[in-house]
Computed example of a mutant assay.
Amino acid sequence: MSNNSLTPSYFQFTVFADYGPLRYLFFSLSLLIYVTIISANAVIVLSVCLETSLHQPMYVFICSLCLNSLYGSTGFFPRFLVDLLSDTHFISRLFCFIQMYVTHTYLGYELNILTAMAYDRFTAICQPLHYCSKMMPRTVLLLLILAVLYSWCSIGYFFYLAITLPLCGNKLHRGFCNCWTIINLSCEDTTVIQMACQFVALTSILIPLIFVLYTYLRILLVCRRSSSEFRGKALQTCLPHIVTFGNYCISLVCEILLSRYNVNEVNPSVIVVLSLEFLIIPSIINPLVYGLNLPQIRGVMIGFLRPLE
């Protein structure tokens, strides 16, 4: 096989069907979703950045979560909108790897930020007297930096394999560039690589998951011995995080199952919907949960919107 066949210069998405006039309806709905994600998350980010009373660890993490939603959706939707209107669905090797990097790091950042938020809630509820000393600005910054570095380390291995492995095809049965799908195009036996990838993926997910479950177990034990008023305040601050973390875990499970399943046997529309789920649902749920549930953010948002009336 020639060298060119081992390093395709482009990839082709095969899940986009000829929807005819319906393509404009799907394009409009997708554009509306994208604009909603950008607007909702931008409002939360501006509220936290411009209001000094929200310059606290919990709100800084919320702001980081919304910034990550802006990052992930922007790395996916522009290309997806083009594909909905296009008759051909080719993407260059460079842009495919850029999209793959953005979507995968988005997933990693999301999980790591949610883990850092669990530590913040654990410290605030279980160790309130030490909260100010433990959650200083430099500690928050360090946690955010570690969230980025941990994602780079865990995802870097997959990214390296996708770039260096010789490929015997260029057809991707997904709505976006996915590392696992590209690795499956390899001409070589990838059994060992797949086992290594599964190990790295499981450890990257299980370690944060176990830590979050541990923190909430400790929080439950503290709330059990506390007054009903204390339990109400704890629930008010923890409920948004529980909702977002649970929603993220469901999205992540859907993405992992889709990556491991034989996509040739799945309806293309189902693949597109499941592919969109982990990018759309968390990005919409996060600002709604935090913007509507937390009175501090809700009050600032209302204050910003009043001059526009």
Rank of each mutant, 00 (worst) to 15 (best):
V266C: 08
L167I: 00
L167G: 05
T105E: 12
L54N: 01
V60P: 04
S251W: 06
E229S: 11
Q127I: 05
L288F: 12
L129Y: 14
I205M: 07
V48I: 10
W180Y: 08
C177Q: 00
N264A: 13
Y214C: 06
E229A: 14
L70R: 03
L142A: 10
L213C: 11
T237H: 13
I44L: 09
E255S: 15
S154I: 06
L239Q: 02
E110S: 14
W152G: 11
S269N: 13
L84V: 01
L50W: 10
N247S: 15
V82H: 14
L294K: 07
Y34Q: 01
L107H: 12
L25V: 14
T88A: 15
N112G: 00
S39C: 08
G72E: 08
F77Q: 03
S47M: 07
V102M: 09
P240R: 03
D83G: 02
I113K: 06
T123L: 14
G175W: 04
M195P: 03
G156K: 00
Y71N: 02
L111M: 09
S151A: 04
S251H: 04
L6M: 11
S259M: 12
A17S: 08
Y71M: 02
L305I: 12
V243E: 01
D87V: 07
I37W: 08
T164A: 11
S133G: 06
S283N: 13
D18A: 10
P287E: 04
L292I: 12
L221H: 08
C66S: 15
Y119G: 13
P208M: 02
I297C: 00
V273I: 15
L202C: 10
I256Y: 13
I33G: 05
R224W: 09
Y216G: 06
C153E: 09
S226K: 03
D120A: 11
S64C: 15
A147F: 00
N267F: 07
P57E: 01
V48R: 00
P137C: 02
I281R: 14
Q194T: 10
L46M: 13
V45F: 01
D189A: 02
H55G: 05
G108Q: 03
P137Y: 04
Y106A: 09
L217T: 07
K233C: 11
T52V: 10
C238G: 02
P8C: 06
V273L: 15
I297K: 03
L81D: 02
G108S: 07
G169M: 00
V35L: 14
